[in-house]
Design a binder for these strands. Structure first.
Lengths: 181, 181
DNA sequence: TGCTACGTTTAGTTCAATCTATACGTTCTA
DNA sequence: TAGAACGTATAGATTGAACTAAACGTAGCA
């Protein structure tokens, strides 16, 4: 147990916690991923309880979330009831999965929501006592709908690009930026 | 006060609240934006208090956040102490601003965090009793650093693209997707 | 000089997310 | 068949973000 090495890991894990939280996941998810990512060998739930310092229940829940997003992977060993976890290391693939599983669903919901509002407005446009306002609502809601559709299409395109990685992304955006290191 | 028209606005605003919350902003921010966006004329704080149904203090705070992100804009009228707010309607510009003001800062933080961890590891690589582990940490941390740098560059590129709108985005991604409507 | 109409600040409260502690069910082993 | 070693489910506690209520500061107006 090298003291400074542990400190570095701690630092790193803390950073990932923050990022995780920023992107709307729990801090624990980031921490757990960090612990697994830095481990030379697959980790069990109990390993994680020790390393991340949260209870087994919480680890269990968060590990499940991570696995659903394919950010970590479960491994079995013959003659061993424990589950072992390893980290996905293809970060582009991770982004793709997150987009697919989480963002996409929310986009769809947003689209449907606007759609419903728009229907309501359209259905009374002619017989309303406030036709002007209804027309305004109609226009604006439609504008946002068009935008959401485009965003949605963009996300779908990104997901479809299975070359979503290093070279491909750079090429897409043409300009080679200051991607130092 | 058309009953159904109000219902449609309510629906719409609720949708935006949810989207706002999903993206890490307060629900109130989404609701306030929605109210202003659908209004035929600029709104004051007190207008918003009535329409969104939260207290003046909360409106004040959230309105300030929205303004900082240039999602709404303040207007003054001569001989009138009230502030009037109008909605930005260029959604691509809004995304650009959010990326610039919020995401960029967090990206930078993430980068620095990983950098610090990496320095710690590198500084003891040779005199450590656990050189193997230190080497592993070094490798993995560096991988993630490279990735973060690329992401960072990507965001910077997007921000730099002031043609970040309709045509440009579609062209970038080549494949014309099912962007119906 | 008071009064009113604003926007802002802040102490305290509320509420949802996430954690802990613990009970539980299952599978393997002796 | 008992008990240990797992992962999971859940009631209750904790926490942090965001809201309310109310005081506040300032500008204009009479």
């Amino acid at each position: 147990m090298n003291k400074e090495l542990d400190a570095a890991r701690e630092q790193f894990i803390q950073g990932l916690s923050r990022i995780s939280h920023f992107w709307g996941f729990s801090k624990a998810m980031g921490a757990i991923y960090g612990a697994i990512y830095l481990s030379p060998s697959p980790l069990t739930l109990d390993d994680l309880v020790k390393q991340v310092n949260i209870t087994k229940g919480a680890v269990s829940t968060n590990v499940r979330s991570l696995e659903r997003l394919k950010i970590i992977h479960k491994q079995y060993k013959v003659g061993d009831r424990k589950d072992y976890y390893v980290a996905e290391t293809d970060f582009w693939k991770m982004i793709k999965n997150i987009l697919k599983e989480r963002e996409k669903a929310e986009f769809d919901h947003a689209l449907k929501s606007v759609e419903r509002s728009l229907e309501m407005v359209k259905s009374l446009k002619s017989d309303s006592t406030e036709m002007e306002l209804a027309a305004l609502y109609g226009e604006r809601m439609q504008s946002i709908q068009v935008f959401f559709n485009k965003l949605d299409g963009l996300v779908a395109t990104i997901i479809a690009l299975d070359e979503l990685r290093e070279g491909a992304v750079k090429k897409l955006f043409g300009k080679e930026k200051t991607t130092k290191s």
